[in-house]
Nucleic acid binder design. Structure first.
Lengths: 149, 149
DNA sequence: TCCGACGCTCTCCTTTTGGTAAGTACAAAT
DNA sequence: ATTTGTACTTACCAAAAGGAGAGCGTCGGA
């Protein structure tokens, strides 16, 4: 049932000739990992540990910035579960625990490094885009945003 | 005021000789961008567009997977604001809108590519770590997790 | 005449996230 | 005897995220 303007030109604009489904189970799994790992706090903690090497609880909190004890504990635990950090308890009397990245965590840090560099490189561009978008929004004329064929 | 075991060995384990503060304002800005960009839906949409090139609204939704219209619209709008995607409205009668990555968006996709590859490469390792952690948790003896000096 | 297609938006509702504050354990320092 | 410091945990609460479903505009087809 063809409706108005299926526009084959537009359909042809796709890239992959085949939708490229690479094993649905794996893809779900990877999506899940991405969703977990792409957490704000995870990234920030990863970055802090990558930068400072080994930190204890409070130091880590300061290194991350504005993070509550709760989120710090929670996120760091999840990272430990996922094998990204190693938690070492020194059984001395004022408790002393320190955290460090495992090789797995370091490899993730390396992978994210590209994203940090991207952010540092392009933040000006993003702000420019935001201003441009806001300015375009000012002109409340909708047709201004529409291609006129 | 030194308390029990300040342990200079532990303190010396840090990496950078200097804490490496690279302009606090920029760092806050970058953290902010990271927090926005490291959103689950942003990453998924980025990936879908990177893979398929150009997609219209419903196609994009299917490509991403389990995403509600609301989140799709919302995230895609934010990405447009940030200059990551270009939204083109074809003023035909059943409305036709398509989305494609801007060069900026493509560069971010490239940066995230490393993370996707990481996830694909290491997901088995993560699951192994999780099972190991769960198994260690089974032994509810706390001292089992503690280094005994 | 009424339906359906598309790309939304809007409202209502539930779930998740995250912060604050308090409590805990224990020994050493005051 | 009381305070201090560390690394939490727990309870409670507010805010935000996110899902479900209805509605909208418009025109061509049944």
């Amino acid at each position: 049932m063809r409706r108005a303007t299926p526009d084959p030109m537009i359909e042809a604009r796709r890239r992959g000739p085949i939708p490229k489904d690479v094993d649905p189970t794996i893809e779900v799994l990877v999506n899940d990992i991405i969703a977990k790992v792409a957490d704000k706090w995870t990234m920030l903690i990863l970055e802090a540990l990558d930068e400072h090497g080994t930190l204890r609880f409070t130091q880590l909190g300061k290194a991350v910035g504005r993070i509550s004890q709760k989120m710090l504990t929670q996120t760091v635990r999840q990272m430990e579960r996922d094998g990204l950090v190693r938690r070492t308890v020194h059984p001395v009397i004022p408790p002393h625990v320190d955290y460090t990245l495992t090789p797995l965590g370091e490899s993730l840090g390396a992978a994210f490094c590209g994203v940090w560099i991207w952010a540092e490189t392009h933040h000006a561009e993003i702000e420019r885009a935001r201003r441009a978008f806001a300015a375009a929004g000012e002109a409340s004329d909708v047709s201004a945003c529409i291609e006129t064929p």
